[in-house]
Design a protein around this nucleic acid. Sequence first.
DNA 1: GATAAGATCATCT
DNA 2: GATGATCTTATCA
Length: 199
Amino acid sequence: MARLRRSFFNRPTVTVARQLLGCYLVRRMGNRVIRVRIIETEAYVGPKDKASHASRGSTPRTQVMFGKAGCLYIYLVYGMYYCLNVVTEREGYPAAVLIRSSVKLGPSSFFVPYGTKNEQNGFEISGPGRVCRALKIDKRLHGEDSVVSRQLWFEKGKLSQNEKIMTGKRIGIPYAGRWQHKRWRFYIKKPSDRTIHWV
DNA sequence: GATAAGATCATCT
DNA sequence: GATGATCTTATCA
């Protein structure tokens, strides 16, 4: 599988957020490799986006958002859960994509995008906190460069023909004023049929 | 099924 | 000292 390069992330954040759908997130810890397929993302775009942690300028926590595209921005929310973001756009312009949900592939190598918890076929990991828990992601990976990392990186993936991209408002940001209404959440539409798709 | 409350701490005011 | 880019459990219906 082809690793996503810096040029993939060094583009408009909304574009990256859309194109990450169907791509893979790969976590390696020693011998063990966990691969999941990304099915939901959110875009946090620029210094004016009141929903973004970077809207108050660069701080020790947020400075990686101002850095190189492809680096990981990881933070703790509500005292107990980590959230994984990947930095986008040019250096100096703070932006990132939050990875909200994924599907872990089963040993059978095909997957059901939504709705199953069957380990044989793969199961959904929905919610940014759960994604990080499932992939054992914590602050130690904050600032890691996914373009060259041996611990966590992204690989190219596709949407199947009957998968469509849906948009919606971002979750959990009622304080963000007019920015809360931006439809910068992206997810793969639940197929109306129950067909199983090949990867 | 839906809604509400509690957990728990780094970061910022 | 207040506040979350959240999730789980409890308590309803």
